[in-house]
Write a protein that binds this DNA or RNA. Structure first.
Lengths: 177, 177
DNA sequence: TTGCTATCAAACATTATGTTCGATATTTTT
DNA sequence: AAAAATATCGAACATAATGTTTGATAGCAA
């Protein structure tokens, strides 16, 4: 990829992330992103059609990486759910993007929405670990909602707890008998 | 309240709700609301400062009513959590506003956010019903997230299940030992 | 009937949107 | 190193939304 393109793209992402810490997504204008990134007007539109496209691509860049099963610094031999979740949380803590800023922003729920899509895929594989008298779909929603809120709690507490601790808490409240 | 004011306010709410069924909150402009409600530009601004204010007031009108402990058609003698939740779900089904349209819209999460604030107050009173090895706050987040997702599941299934059934499902997945 | 006030329509300055274009600078290819 | 390709810039432009103001008209309450 052309060095110029990457530089511009990064500048836009950085500016966007920075602005998100200050105000809600919907109140951020393309003009502000352009000014903050210090790029030409037409350059922005050469990269992204709309603000929504920008958001979507940014989420992809962030979450696709986290959920990809690439080898990473956080090595885990075990393959159980708790370990996987801790792995994901570890990625949220150690990342190139400033995810903490994004998740703790007024638009944090926006990012969680994208995250939930990925969580759905993951939890589907572990549904049989849980036993309830509810439709499978209902259980899936339950797990996703609970884990998303666990992340929110974690972030609201400044991510002071370890990923392993949060994963343990989650397993505790979702435990079935 | 002046009959004219109420008429205008209702027209705005109705137009807003109608537009929300077609597109995301952030993409709806004040101009569109004005056109749909068929009112004068200055009239809108005489009622609401911004689109955000409109949303907030609409949510208050909806949810404050549901969570107020007024006597209502759905009479329940028992005072346990499951009954209370069924009561709330019943209100979501039988309302003046078109809540189904709102919750199933692309901005459904927006309304759930407001709903969650009320749920927090409610669940706090029943925290002792649950026993886990997690911080109380964490448990609270868990319950809120789970119930919000239960509502989403319910709405996605066109609210075919009864409020009692959903409440039962929720109790089943959040049961502690 | 007489005030009171909500609505309306029109106008206005300001700002954002999305597109186009030629000039300039940087990268890649030959 | 020279040539071709392309990303950026900055300016201009038409369109549309924002939020406010003003005077006229209508409906409401006493």
């Amino acid at each position: 990829m052309d060095r110029r393109q990457k530089k511009t793209r990064d500048a836009i992402f950085k500016a966007f992330g920075h602005l998100l810490e200050g105000k809600k997504y919907e109140h951020i204008t393309v003009q502000e992103i352009i000014d903050e990134a210090d790029i030409g007007r037409s350059t922005f539109y050469a990269h992204f059609e709309t603000k929504d496209t920008l958001l979507k691509e940014m989420c992809s860049d962030i979450f696709d990486h986290i959920f990809s099963d690439k080898i990473c610094e956080y090595s885990a031999e075990k393959n159980d759910l708790e370990t996987k979740l801790a792995h994901i949380l570890w990625h949220l803590q150690n990342n190139n993007f400033n995810i903490y800023g994004l998740l703790s922003s007024q638009s944090g729920d926006l990012f969680l929405q994208y995250l939930k899509e990925q969580l759905a895929i993951l939890f589907k594989m572990y549904l049989s670990d849980f036993h309830t008298d509810t439709p499978e779909d209902f259980l899936l929603y339950h797990l996703i909602g609970s884990f998303a809120e666990a992340i929110k709690w974690w972030v609201n507490n400044k991510m002071q707890h370890s990923p392993e601790q949060i994963a343990k808490y989650f397993m505790a409240v979702t435990e079935t008998h």
